[in-house]
Design a protein around this nucleic acid. Structure first.
Lengths: 174, 174
DNA sequence: TGATTCCTCCATATTTCATTCGGTACGATC
DNA sequence: GATCGTACCGAATGAAATATGGAGGAATCA
């Protein structure tokens, strides 16, 4: 999905046509479909259609468009960290120094235990979300971070309990 | 899925049978299937079977078992935060004080913009992952947090860029 | 106003895939 | 060596995804 398509206005292109492509505005029906799929992507088009008062093909067409436009980035299975042998979750705030920043980020992302890499404003430059087998593995991961170029300091927050974990979802009534 | 089923040993129940139910050990084939589904849950059983050298029904049976055992917790659509009108991601470290802790956590989880709620060891007691429409909404969210019982302080880390975002996944070659 | 275009929807038809159903092979138990 | 439980396969079935053709409505433009 390319960036910058159909920005906001798109008037005055040069010919007579106002908008060469329609702006893929998301309406409430789209939002309902998105929320339902963000909760459970195994729902059938028939069920979705029942809930938003559309026929299965109409829902199918909307979902196809939402995927094409990058609103739906994919469909994934949510796994239980503990069940796959990684019961220890932690956030690591990494303080970085200047150069080779992008390369450093890529190095973080290349580590299997790392689930998320964000750059943040505030005294930590990078926030990592990591999931490891045990404290030993977390310790080894930290040692590995310190060996990487551009890493000045790291501060860990070991998660004791997770009470909510979900993805982006439209806030709309069903 | 109930907790505590088939713990570790399960010997010496009282009768002669050693283990009333088989331990659902996860083997490498399961791990490959899990990894493939964590990447893209729209893959067909036929494709999965091709990749792990099993027939579609055999894969189906394994996936059914993995779901039953809670290893696969669900299948969800990953949405683009920006596309659904929430481009601003932030982590909030909340310092809490004593009583009514669980209730406070539930209150956090009940806020639509909140995606994750974790309790952590370290000076922050709770870490929140939130996604809002703009800085104004983030500010209002913070104000709302401060009004809640048990919230002593909050520190925000506004995300400038996300370079990796995925869920738990088995680290195994395909 | 009327013609045209684009978009969205529906009903139906088709194809693909999930799921079920025997039946076989293998290992463990007794 | 008989029996049980498990995991697998091929074939059959059923359900759902997807393709197709056409109707209706809004906006555009003559």
């Amino acid at each position: 999905m390319r960036q910058g398509e159909w920005a906001t206005g798109m008037e005055e292109t040069n010919g007579t046509r106002r908008r060469p492509t329609a702006p893929p505005a998301i309406d409430d029906t789209d939002r309902r479909i998105l929320r339902l799929l963000a909760e459970d992507a195994t729902r059938t088009y028939a069920e979705l259609g029942r809930r938003v008062h559309l026929s299965p093909p109409a829902v199918h067409e909307r979902v196809r468009r939402l995927k094409r436009d990058g609103v739906i980035r994919g469909t994934v299975a949510r796994l239980d960290g503990t069940a796959i042998g990684c019961p220890l979750l932690a956030f690591i705030h990494v303080e970085t120094e200047g150069r080779a920043f992008t390369r450093t980020l890529d190095s973080f992302a290349a580590i299997a235990d790392v689930e998320e890499v964000h750059t943040v404003a505030g005294d930590a430059g990078v926030v990592l979300k990591v999931r490891t087998r045990d404290t030993g593995d977390l310790e080894r991961l930290l040692a590995r971070l310190y060996e990487m170029e551009g890493v000045r300091a790291a501060k860990s927050f070991v998660v004791l309990g997770t009470y909510l974990e979900r993805g982006p979802h439209p806030d709309i009534d069903l």
